[in-house]
Simulated assay, not measured.
Amino acid sequence: MNICKNFKFLRNMRGGIRNASMPGARSTASPYVLERLRNRELIRVNGAEVVPFLQGLVTNDVSRLQHPSGPASMYAMFLNRGGRVLFDTIIYRTNDPETFLLECDREASSDFRRHLRMFRVRKQIDIDTVEDEYVPWVLYNDQKPSEITQRSSKSSGLFISPDPRVGALGTRLLAPTDLNWPKLTKTLWRDVDIVAAESHPENSYQLLRYKHGVGEGVRELPPGKCFPLEANADYLNGVSFNKGCYIGQELTARVHHSGVIRKRYMPMRFTSPVSSNYTVKSIAGANLGRVLGHAQNRGVGLLRIDPVLNGEQQLVIDGERCYVDRPQWWPSDTKKNKLEAVE
C-alpha cells in the first residue's frame, strides 16, 4: 500500500541529533525519543464513498484531507447520538484518495470496526485492520515541539506526520511491521549509529501526554462518559463547526455556540501514588472531578474548570495533595464566562 510521506523534519533534525549522540558530545538538549505505540492500531477504510461515509460519523472535516494543500492527518472523534465520545482517532490520508487509515485504541479495535460497519449500510466501503502491515510509532522531544511542514515524498516504507492535535506531542510514524526499533532508526537516519533514545518509564509517551493533559483511548476517554469539548476536541483541532451534519453534531454545536462548558481534561501532578480512589476533592470535601489516567506522579483528569483554575481551593485525592496545571496549549483568550456548565 502506498502512503504519503514527510521527511523534511528528518533532514532538519539530523545534524542536531547526530551531534547529540556522538560519544563525548556535550549536549544540554533533551534527546529525541522513538517509541512504538503498542496500545494503538490502524484500521483501513476504503471505498468510492469513503469521504461522505466518514463525514457523517466524525467531528472533523474529512474532505480537507483530499485537498492538495490539506493536512496529512487530522484528529477527530466518533460520538453517540447523545453527543458523547465513543472513540478518538487520528485519520491519515494515503496516496489513494479512496483510502484512509484510522488510528484507534487497540483495546477497542473490534468495537470500533463494528461501529463503522453498522453505519456502512449499502455504501461500497471496506473496513479492515492493517496491524499485520503497519504499526504506529511516535518521535518526540519533551523540551520542544516538532518542526514539520507538509511535504510529500516518494521514499518508500514510512508515513511521517506531525501530531495533528498539538505540536508538543511529537511526530507520528506509521512503519511496516518488519521494522523494529534498530531497523527503523537506520531507515530514518542513514549512516548515524544512535539517533534517538528508547522510551523508559520516566520518559514515555504516556507521561508526555499526561504532562499536557491529553486523554487518549477508551480507558482515559470512557465511551459515553464525556462530551468532545470536555475532552478539548475544540482546542486539539479535532472538531469542525463549519461542516455538515454528523452523529452527535447538534449538541456539540449548541454547546460551542453557547460557550457553556464546566469541565475539561487537564494535566495533574500528584504528591503520592494514586490508589483505587480517583475522585478529586477540595479540602472542604467538594467533588471537583476524577482522574482518568495516571503514571508516575502525573495524570490526566476531567475536572471542573472554575473552582480548580480560578479558585483558591487546595485539591486532594484520598487526603493527599495534588495539583492541576492550565495546559500551555489552551487558547490564551479563554474567557471565564465560557467556563460554566455542560449537563
Rank of each mutant, 00 (worst) to 15 (best):
L188G: 08
I194D: 09
G213L: 04
M266Q: 10
K183I: 12
L184A: 09
F227R: 05
H256L: 03
L208K: 05
M266D: 06
S161W: 09
T177A: 15
M266P: 10
F270D: 13
S156Y: 07
P162H: 07
H212M: 07
S272T: 07
E216M: 07
N237R: 13
R254S: 04
D163N: 09
G244M: 11
L229P: 03
S155Q: 10
G224K: 05
I283T: 07
K225S: 15
K211A: 12
H200C: 08
K225C: 01
S276M: 04
R190H: 04
H212L: 14
M268W: 04
A168K: 07
D234Y: 08
R269W: 13
P228D: 01
A231Y: 00
G238C: 02
P182E: 15
V280D: 11
R209E: 01
R264M: 03
E230N: 05
L169N: 01
E220H: 03
K225W: 05
A196F: 02
P162T: 04
V274K: 04
P273Y: 12
A284F: 09
P164L: 03
I194S: 15
G224Q: 13
Y235C: 08
R264P: 02
R262I: 00
K183R: 06
A175G: 15
K186M: 09
S282V: 07
A284H: 13
C226E: 11
Y205K: 02
G238M: 07
N242W: 06
L251V: 06
K225H: 15
Y246W: 13
G167R: 14
Y265A: 05
M268G: 01
Y246R: 08
R165N: 00
Y205V: 01
Y246P: 08
F241R: 09
T252P: 00
D163Y: 06
D191W: 05
S204L: 06
C245T: 10
L174K: 04
G244R: 15
A253D: 01
N232C: 15
C226Y: 10
G215N: 00
G259T: 09
A196K: 00
R219H: 10
L207H: 05
Y235M: 12
R262W: 00
S199N: 14
P176T: 00
S240K: 04
V192S: 03
L208I: 08
A231D: 09
H200M: 03
L251W: 01
N237C: 08
L236D: 00
I247F: 12
N237E: 09
